[in-house]
């Protein structure tokens, strides 16, 4: 009887498997195959075998390490900032105040707008000669080319990401906050917990699973950031904003499908490892009871 129940339950996986296998698993296997070939546009149907050469060329050249550094910095800063700001916003919205629902809608707007639209919007706004941001900076006598200077361009991309994705983290954490039982909070208050202790020792441990989810989703997503960075800077100046996703694209754009596939695989492995690391850290009992 039990065995039948398990099999019947497994049947419920079928619809998602039917979708996932063709759109996810098969391309994944193809990527593995391509990564082992010298495959370009011109020899797409007749490529030669490369073995692990694509991987070796990647890790022995400077471009991979530069992009890994850019992506690492990018992911660390944006995920950290988005989760912190998202948490602060969620705590703020936990109070009742006038205009809360209107403010909620306004805050969610960046998530709704397509990333490509965001890209073109900021490309115009940050343009040195035509952009409003540069105009305001020039009035303030701040002489900086936001998209033309390496550090400024990367900082701008990070700020844009934070602006777009903080609402997402806020939404997830806020939903989690609403599930914290009020009885637990009341009990803590009766026991004399201060606001800080209430947050640190009651709310935060209860929110950790949902924060973990937000961090994992955002880490994976931030690793894949492409659209607006490519539209605004194209990965430049030079390789200053060339994240791993943009480097993958640049190899693909060059027709070097083998290198592009090999790098895609490496990024996938890194994203999985990083997510696993986060998960282990955030749900460890040591963190919860410290």
């Amino acid at each position: 009887m039990r065995k039948w129940a398990i099999n019947r339950n497994n049947l419920f996986l079928l619809p998602s498997l039917i979708i996932l296998i063709p759109i996810s698993l098969i391309p994944f296997l193809i990527i593995i195959y391509f990564s082992l070939l010298n495959i370009y546009t011109f020899n797409f149907y007749n490529p030669s075998w490369a073995g692990l050469n694509n991987f070796i060329n990647l890790v022995s050249g400077p471009d991979f390490w530069n992009s890994l550094f850019v992506s690492g910095l990018y992911v660390t800063v944006v995920v950290g900032a988005e989760v912190i700001f998202g948490l602060l916003l969620a705590l703020f919205f936990n109070y009742n105040f006038y205009g809360k629902s209107v403010l909620f809608v306004i805050i969610m707007i960046p998530v709704i707008i397509s990333q490509a639209v965001v890209g073109y919007m900021f490309l115009i706004m940050l343009s040195d000669m035509f952009g409003i941001v540069s105009y305001i900076l020039s009035i303030l006598n701040v002489k900086i080319s936001i998209l033309g200077e390496r550090a400024a361009a990367l900082a701008a991309m990070i700020l844009i990401d934070i602006l777009i994705w903080t609402p997402y983290c806020f939404l997830v954490i806020y939903a989690g906050l609403k599930t914290v039982p009020s009885a637990v909070l009341e009990a803590a208050k009766i026991d004399g917990a201060t606001k800080y202790k209430l947050f640190r020792y009651v709310m935060l441990p209860l929110l950790l699973p949902i924060i973990t989810v937000a961090v994992i989703f955002r880490t994976i997503d931030a690793f894949k950031t492409f659209d607006y960075v490519y539209i605004i800077t194209g990965g430049g100046p030079g390789t200053a904003t060339t994240t791993l996703s943009i480097l993958i694209y640049k190899y693909f754009d060059s027709g070097n499908i083998g290198m592009s596939s090999a790098l895609s695989l490496l990024v996938l492995i890194m994203a999985i490892l990083l997510s696993r690391l986060y998960y282990s850290f955030l749900v460890s009992r040591r963190w919860q009871t410290t």
């Binding site: 490309l123 343009s127 080319s145 033309g148 200077e149 800077t233 194209g234 430049g236 100046p237």
Partner: peptide
């Protein structure tokens, strides 16, 4: 222009 790296046909 200092943001030369964003200059293509339209700009």
């Amino acid at each position: 222009p200092p943001d030369w790296n964003t200059y293509e046909y339209p700009k």
